[in-house]
Computed example of a mutant assay.
Amino acid sequence: MEKRTREYLQVSQQDSDRVTGLTIPPRLSDGIDSFYETFALKGLRLEQFLPGYICYSFIVPPRLTDRNGNLAVGAIATIVDNIGASVLYRKDGPKHVSVDISISYLSTAKLNDELEISTRLLGTKGPYKGTLVVLKNKLTREIIAEGRLSVFSPATSKI
């Protein structure tokens, strides 16, 4: 078992080449805060926007796949965190801090699959807000993952 685990965790030359070949663009003032968010969310397209509900489409890029060609679970977690908070975003509004995230991984998405990613506000209790994020394969309608995100929005100072 230990030998198989060690072999599985071994970085392949292909994986090493993929990381070495990454092109990191200079930071732009387009509202995206970091390389991490740019890396994970680049290519996301807004499909529908309603108060309390947003729907995006996204084609799974090579940079977010694991060695089996599936959308990586870490990428799904990043998408749930960022997209879940997007339904709460208000220009000049308070910053939101994720305090709890729960994700059910139900299926896999492959390289170049087109996903529908929807988020909606579940509710608010004082400074706490809850959102639901669902990732679906746009062609088959199969649910890839479902995540719930709880965020805290500190009160803005009146000083």
Rank of each mutant, 00 (worst) to 15 (best):
R6C: 08
I144P: 00
K136F: 01
H96L: 11
C55Q: 13
S118H: 04
G21W: 07
E7A: 13
Y89G: 07
S86L: 12
I54V: 14
R63S: 11
V19D: 03
K3E: 15
A77S: 08
A109G: 07
G93R: 00
Y8Q: 11
S34I: 00
S107N: 14
E47D: 15
N137S: 06
S150I: 09
L46F: 06
D30K: 01
G147Q: 01
L44D: 10
P62A: 14
A109T: 13
N112Y: 03
N70D: 12
D33N: 12
L88Q: 05
S29Q: 09
D30S: 05
L132N: 06
Y56W: 09
T20K: 14
R6D: 14
L9V: 10
S86Q: 05
R90D: 07
E114C: 12
E114A: 13
K136C: 10
Y89L: 12
L122V: 07
G93A: 10
D113M: 01
D66H: 08
L111S: 10
Q48P: 02
V73G: 08
M1S: 13
S153T: 08
L41D: 10
G74L: 03
Y8R: 12
Q48I: 12
S29P: 01
L139R: 10
P61C: 02
D113E: 01
G31D: 03
G123S: 03
S29G: 12
S150T: 15
T108V: 14
F39K: 06
E142Y: 06
L50G: 12
E37D: 08
E146F: 01
E2V: 10
S16H: 13
G147D: 00
L122N: 11
S98T: 15
A145L: 05
V11R: 08
I101N: 03
G31S: 11
V151W: 02
I143Y: 05
E37G: 13
F58H: 09
T65D: 03
D30Q: 03
I83P: 06
K129T: 11
S157E: 05
P25I: 11
L115P: 00
F58S: 10
T5R: 11
R18L: 15
T140R: 02
S150Y: 09
L149S: 02
Q13E: 11
I54Q: 04
